[in-house]
Design a protein around this nucleic acid. Structure first.
Lengths: 205, 205, 205, 205
DNA sequence: CATGAATGAGCTTTCATTCAT
DNA sequence: CATGAATGAAAGCTCATTCAT
């Protein structure tokens, strides 16, 4: 991997065949990343699994980094899609209900392709992608969560947002890595911790 | 990386010069891991940074994996040293005090070389090191924490131990990665979350 | 050299350029083997002498062993081509004439690239190639010679075939290594020995 | 292996301990050669098996080649010892009896450590050792065999000596490699071939 | 003299990337 | 545009050899 490289795709094709090829390549890359990890992800491997030639891959991605950056971008968009509705709805609720709603969406998000998710998170800082450049809506949800917390009078809302996100991600990933499948059970254990962080009394009380 | 490889060092030298070389190599490996990540860790790079020849490196480590395994082993020993005292002391306390004591030790532990720590954690499952083989005291602390939780009547103590560990690690790493330095502040935010998880009333109450 | 490795080529190209490259690599390998022996045969050396890059070599041969295995396979095919006609023809002759015919073909065979031949023979057991896998016609000639000897009432035809083959190879290689070029002369000296082995009276008698 | 190297030992020690070390190293080298082949013969391996340090090895042998050259020299001396008596005795016999006597000695010689023998033969031309330099008595037996053949009126005695030697070696090695152990049986099959070569009538006649 | 830690050239192999077809 | 043969820097690792102790 070269040190200074472009992180944006070479062409953004809108025609059918090209579009299908690009999708195939990204899907292939995601699958390899999920199943075999980043060390096993090679451009030749991606092209082969996608059913295109290596030359075609380099028509659309100037280098390996770009493929990964695009996967990160899509992951962020997925995050946006998974969370946006819940965060919007939460604005009309009280803190306890809002927390439950956002927490549920967050767990749902972390539960899809957790291995891929972890790999992409690591990549995120390695690629030091420009937030705005990569995904316009990326940080939007983050900002809205901050605002949400602020509206409930939480002190240091940025820190709280980051803390809760990290705390949630850490526990969900660990549970999934350990073989747990019941998201509701994970949520039930995580909820009191988040309530505790926010200074809310436990549910039963 | 070959699939089946030895994970134990080749020689364990006791003379001064050799011992210094081995330490230099491990330190170099840890630094590269911390600063540039696992993908950038090469045997040639480790040897160069350690100021020894590549041949010398292979006198003491039969392969790259072994270096990483030794780092993991030392990390586990560090974990043991950092936590053992706190866990022992916690046995004589009530749940609230015990939690505070262990939490503090845990944060201290995660705060040393957090990047290295994250990399080593990922390596741990990649190398699938034999728990007992690598570090006799490795899982001891984990087991004692489980027992501690059990003694306080916490349901599913294994799950709780894993949850709390992951939750704690996630938040501490995120805070440190974000540039926070004040461990006490981090601890102050983390404590209510842990209390919440354990069903304890918030401190002020 | 790893212990368990593939022994079959990676791609079998049919286009002109690739085909030429593969031939060039095999020729280069054979030449190095012939002139400087197996210890001097390196993949880099083969690629350089063939005028291709090391990367290209590994496009067609997954490892060093495979190159050698392919040379052995070709040597066996050459053996088949050199001997098959003579052995077929010998079936209609008496023992004396049959022996002369096969002996002549055998000497012809051993005379082409005798050094290469010796190296490849040594490789044959090192690589423990699967007879059938490597060359369908490989052992066919051997079996036919055994049958031929059997048809003439020779006791222990397998042993006799191996003895005569070894005896012939030994003498021809030694003569060629000593600088002799006149194959007819070598044959004239070898013939009475073979006749003697088979219990035939000397020619002049 | 450097290209131009000395082929004579560095010191020829007569004292007890040194002499024992040298013997141990040569024995170790011979064993490795016999069992695992030349590719597995490393100077470090020889030293280790001999129970001496690598530094000591280089006190007595300036390089790897020299060890091999010394093994070749000893092999030749062994040949001398194995054959000299038989060749001397043969001078007083008729051709048939002389042939039997020398043949028997020759087979005996080839039967000791045949794998080692083959490896050393290959080394002989690789090292292109100077006949006289390496072993004074080396060619003596060869010359005496030539004289013996000459005394019986055999035409081209040098060629005949080389032919018979190669023919004999080829067949014996093949038989041993094939798992045969009965030297008498091998001799019984080889004898008529040699008689045939020399123009003698078969034994039964 | 014996030791063995240290050296580094050189080997096998991989993989991101280019470019002629 | 698509292809895939070709490239070569760079990685992991070995082993003959030296030299300070």
């Amino acid at each position: 991997m070269a040190r200074i490289v472009a992180l944006t795709p070479r062409k953004t094709p809108r025609q059918g065949r090209s579009r299908a090829s690009v999708e195939a390549m990204l899907t292939a890359a995601a699958q390899i990343l999920e199943v075999r990890g980043i060390a096993a992800l090679t451009t030749n491997g991606v092209a082969e699994r996608a059913g295109v030639s290596i030359g075609t891959l380099y028509q659309y991605f100037p280098n390996k980094e770009t493929i990964l950056a695009e996967l990160v971008r899509r992951q962020k968009m997925q995050f946006f899609e998974d969370m946006f509705g819940a965060v919007q709805a939460a604005k009309a609720m009280d803190l306890r209900r809002a927390t439950e709603t956002v927490l549920q969406a967050s767990i749902q998000h972390h539960a899809r392709a957790p291995e891929l998710s972890r790999e992409l998170e690591k990549l995120e800082d390695m690629l030091d992608v420009d937030e705005e450049d990569i995904c316009a809506g990326g940080g939007l949800v983050d900002r809205q969560i901050v605002e949400l917390l602020e509206s409930f009078g939480i002190a240091q809302p940025e820190t709280a947002a980051r803390d809760l996100s990290a705390l949630c991600r850490g526990m969900v990933h660990a549970a999934l890595a350990d073989g747990e499948c019941d998201l509701a059970a994970i949520e039930a254990r995580l909820r009191p911790a988040v309530f505790g962080y926010l200074g809310l009394a436990p549910e039963g009380a």
